[in-house]
């Protein structure tokens, strides 16, 4: 087998459903979905591999108000991660194959992973949730 490679590509949200269908058609294996908080919303990373050698990370920028189509009807394994990004980040995902409607994780605060710990994150998340969390400067981080 060839050496390991990983690739990162950005696609618009409108192309996500097409991408998932094309991955399904070419027999790609689903690996992961995860979200990351950015200044003006979130980046969702969808990971697949078509040949086990290349880890193909497709990134979609979404805002807190966007509705993201679920890929779990095509890749059932994705239902865990779609419920996860909904519960932990508050991203709206529509059409999850097994939809727990926010009850997948037993969490004590709403969207705990989206709670801002950096000033630049605070604006985007606080706009949606109205929360104010004190932000502390961390050791080793540059001003």
């Amino acid at each position: 087998m060839a050496a390991y490679q990983d690739t990162f590509t950005s696609i618009p949200l409108s192309e996500l459903a097409t991408l998932a269908q094309s991955k399904k058609d070419e027999g790609a294996r689903f690996i992961n979905i995860h979200a990351a908080t950015v200044a003006d919303g979130f980046v969702l990373t969808y990971t697949f591999t078509s040949n086990e050698t290349v880890t193909d990370n497709c990134q979609v920028h979404v805002t807190a108000d966007d509705v993201v189509p679920a890929i779990s009807p095509l890749f059932l394994a994705a239902f865990v991660f779609e419920n996860e990004v909904h519960d932990l980040f508050g991203i709206n995902i529509e059409g999850i194959a097994v939809d727990f409607k926010g009850d997948f994780y037993q969490i004590s605060i709403e969207t705990p992973m989206a709670v801002p710990t950096k000033p630049e994150h605070a604006t985007a998340v606080n706009t949606k949730y109205g929360a104010t969390v004190p932000v502390k400067q961390r050791k080793g981080e540059e001003q």
Partner: peptide, 21 residues
């Protein structure tokens, strides 16, 4: 910085839950 922006770990069991079902 010395801190990562994001770290993600997707473990095998979470991937296998669909197969279990």
């Amino acid at each position: 910085s010395m801190f990562l922006e994001r770290m993600r770990i997707r473990t095998p069991t979470s991937q296998n839950l669909g197969g279990l079902v």
